[in-house]
Amino acid sequence: MTASSSGIFPVAASLLIPHRPPMAIVESLEQADSGGALAQAQVEVGSPFVRSDGTVEPLILLEIIAQACAAYGGWLAGDAGRGKRAVFLVGVRCFEVLGKAVAGKTMEIAMTLDKAFGGFHLFRGVLRQDGHAVAQASLKAYHPEEPTTGA
């Protein structure tokens, strides 16, 4: 575990974002600071997001990057101690699928915060599995000020 000014890592994503199964795919924020973060996710074998060949549906890779960025945004806002907040994906730019992700194996999402203004955050995220980039995206998220209790 790594100590930070906002707590101890890893931080369960369920403390930062309101997603529930089966949509709760990101498991934890492994490390974070003001410039970037690293999260872990896994799509379980048998999930509705897995194709018959055992690979993850490509569009779900975007969802994973978005959830990881939302968890990072929640961490930046100090939400872990104040309750989960709804985070709204308001724009995606440059989403690219670079390879196939396999169900049942850990994925790592590296994120950088490009800009923050008001409740908006501009993120870049790269999803990797077994050290290989599988997908990447730039996205904008909105973090309202009032906590929520579920999604």
Rank of each mutant, 00 (worst) to 15 (best):
M1F: 06
T2D: 01
T2M: 06
A3V: 03
S5L: 09
S6H: 14
S6A: 11
I8K: 10
P10V: 10
S14I: 12
S14L: 09
L15E: 10
P18D: 04
P21K: 10
I25L: 15
I25Q: 00
I25T: 05
V26D: 04
V26E: 00
E27I: 01
L29D: 05
E30L: 02
Q31N: 03
A32Q: 03
S34A: 13
A37H: 04
A37K: 02
A39P: 05
A41H: 03
Q42N: 09
F49I: 10
D53T: 06
V56Y: 11
V56M: 12
E57V: 04
E57R: 07
P58V: 11
L61H: 15
L62D: 01
I64E: 10
A66N: 05
Q67K: 08
Q67C: 10
A68L: 08
A68E: 11
A68H: 07
A70H: 10
Y72S: 08
G74M: 08
L76R: 14
A77W: 11
G83E: 09
K84Q: 14
F88H: 03
F88Y: 15
G91P: 11
V92S: 08
C94A: 13
K100V: 09
A101V: 12
V102K: 15
V102A: 13
M107V: 05
A110N: 04
M111D: 03
A116T: 14
F117L: 09
G118A: 08
G119W: 01
G119Y: 00
F120W: 05
F120C: 02
H121C: 09
L122E: 08
F123H: 15
V126N: 03
V126H: 02
L127D: 00
H132K: 11
A133I: 02
A133W: 02
A137T: 07
A137N: 04
S138L: 03
S138N: 05
K140H: 00
K140A: 07
H143R: 15
E145D: 12
E146C: 01
T148P: 01
T148W: 04
A151S: 11
A151T: 12
